[in-house]
Each structure stands twice: as structure tokens, then as C-alpha cells.
Design a protein around this nucleic acid. Sequence first.
DNA 1: TGAAACCCGAGTAGAAAAGTAGGGATTAAT
DNA 2: ATTAATCCCTACTTTTCTACTCGGGTTTCA
Lengths: 149, 149
Amino acid sequence: MKLSTKGRYGVRAMLDLAINASENHISLKSIAENQKISEHYLEQLIATLRKAGLVKSIRGAQGGYTLAYPSSQITVGAVLRALEGSLAPVDCVLEDEPYECDISTCCVTKKIWERVRDSINEVVDSITLQDLVDDYRKIHSNDGYMFYI
Amino acid sequence: MKLSTKGRYGVRAMLDLAINASENHISLKSIAENQKISEHYLEQLIATLRKAGLVKSIRGAQGGYTLAYPSSQITVGAVLRALEGSLAPVDCVLEDEPYECDISTCCVTKKIWERVRDSINEVVDSITLQDLVDDYRKIHSNDGYMFYI
DNA sequence: TGAAACCCGAGTAGAAAAGTAGGGATTAAT
DNA sequence: ATTAATCCCTACTTTTCTACTCGGGTTTCA
């Protein structure tokens, strides 16, 4: 029941972008350095986020990435689902294409997993990147990047 | 962010025991057959549940397993945590021995994972095996074992 | 033109999940 | 007492997935 590095790294990368949203765009390299994440690996994660429409890229020299929307409009849930897929704890309660049990109506335990899925989504959808930025600014006064996992 | 088969099989096995709690004890073999789970694999899961004090075993011929407590006193959460360990989505918010980040006070994202962890625990701790038995009886009228995942 | 960036697909080592194998210990029934 | 059913235990294997790495290609600014 663990989140993979995709989700964790992704949220941190997006938070990095949100914190530095004042600058026009940020290079992959600098995010990777700040967050101590393999550059090439992060590239793949950001590519996923771009395809999901959560970040925009600027190509060429001096290029980089920016958030596609204001940080107050991007939830942690959207980031996680883009990278991890559905947050359903078992495949029979996937939101889009639930895996059909042989005898789905008989599946008593399904109710448990639906409730777990919904409660996870509720939490992560209630937190925006801006909330994280606010928390971050409360702790730091522009003293660099210090939010590791 | 998926539950492993340990957790899913474990809950189903415990539900099987709860449904048949009227009989004194049930053999591993019959649970495995009912639930369509490899007998040898289920044996390992039940061993874990026994060591966690959730089921009792009777050895020898005609032996088997029973719940260690009334089904109304065993939560899904207890079963899941016995088999899966902490339901924390990342190691830095494990209840018992949280993985210490280098700079833990600075970890803004930690708050997210704490809230996710707590909400998962809240859901699974609010559901007892008896709740599942009640659901099961609502759907079936003693027509066998039909709750697959 | 060249360097700094983003873009893309394939491959890979290690870890974890899921299950197998094989035997030992206990006990009810005969 | 013997047998068969059952639980108990350790180790091994197979499959899948994670978390990368590799090696390029393309775009754009200076």
C-alpha cells in the first residue's frame, strides 16, 4: 500500500515549480538538482505530467517548465493520479474501467475498497499546490529548497 | 498504491471464518477452496494472522482455524495491518518507526501523507468483520460462497 | 553554429510479490 | 498402534514491477 517514487517525486517537482512560479520557467536540470532526483528519470515523470496537461514546456536553450494552471487550481490528487493512475486500492474499484469479478454483485469486500478509494481521493483532492506553497513559506523564508522525503 | 494479495486474500479468509463462526473451526483446505486461493500460500497468510493473535488454530486431524475474537471485535484494519504492515502511503509517516528524512521539519509534503494515512486507517478501522457478515447475509441466503474479488 | 535545453523509445538491474516444494509435528478416528 | 488429516515451518522459484540508465533526436537562444 505504498506510493511509488513517481507520485512522491512528482508532487515535489510540482511543488518546486509552484514555489518558483514567479520566474517564467524552470529547467528540468535545476528541479532535479534541488530535489536530488535523477534527471533522466524525472524527465519521464514530467513528460507524463505534460501529457496530462498539468505542466507546459518551453523547448530550446533557456527552456524549461511551468505549471499549466495557477497553483491554487492544481490539486495533489490530479498530480498523483496522472503519475500513479487511479488511487483505488484494488482493481475491482477502478473509477474508469473496474476489473469485473466473476460475480461482482456478490463481492462484499468491494464496499471496503470503494470507501478507502473515496477517502484517499477526498484528501488529496482537497489539497492544492498553493496550500503546500503556503505551508512551505510558513517554515522557510526564502532559504532555498529543503523539503525532502 | 495497490493492496497486495496478502491483504485482499486475508480479509476474504477472515470473512469466511466469520461467516462460518457457528461451526467450531474450519480447515485451511476448505477456506482455500471456497476462496479459490492457493492452499500453501494462504497457509502463510493465516500463519501471520495467527501470530498477530487474530485467529486460533486447532492442530491434528479434524483441526482448523477459528477467529480469536467475536467478529464484531475484529476490524478490517487490524487484519490489513497484520498482513500488509502499516497502511502509511510513504515510509516517512509510518506510525511505529517513521523513516527520518534528512530535514524532517522541512518536509512539506509529509502533511499530505499523514492525512492520507489517517483517513485510510479511519475507514478500515470503522469496518468490522461482523459488518461484512451482515452485508453478506443481506445478499445471500445461505447459498454458498460467492464473494470473490 | 553550438550549446542548452526538451523529447523519445528501449533496455536493465534489483527488489518485491506471489506462489511452490517438501518435509515435520500433532491429533482424531479406526 | 496406525493411518490419515491437519496444522507448522523453512527455503526456493518464478513473475512482475520499480526505478532507474542509455543513447540518441529535436528545438531554440545567443
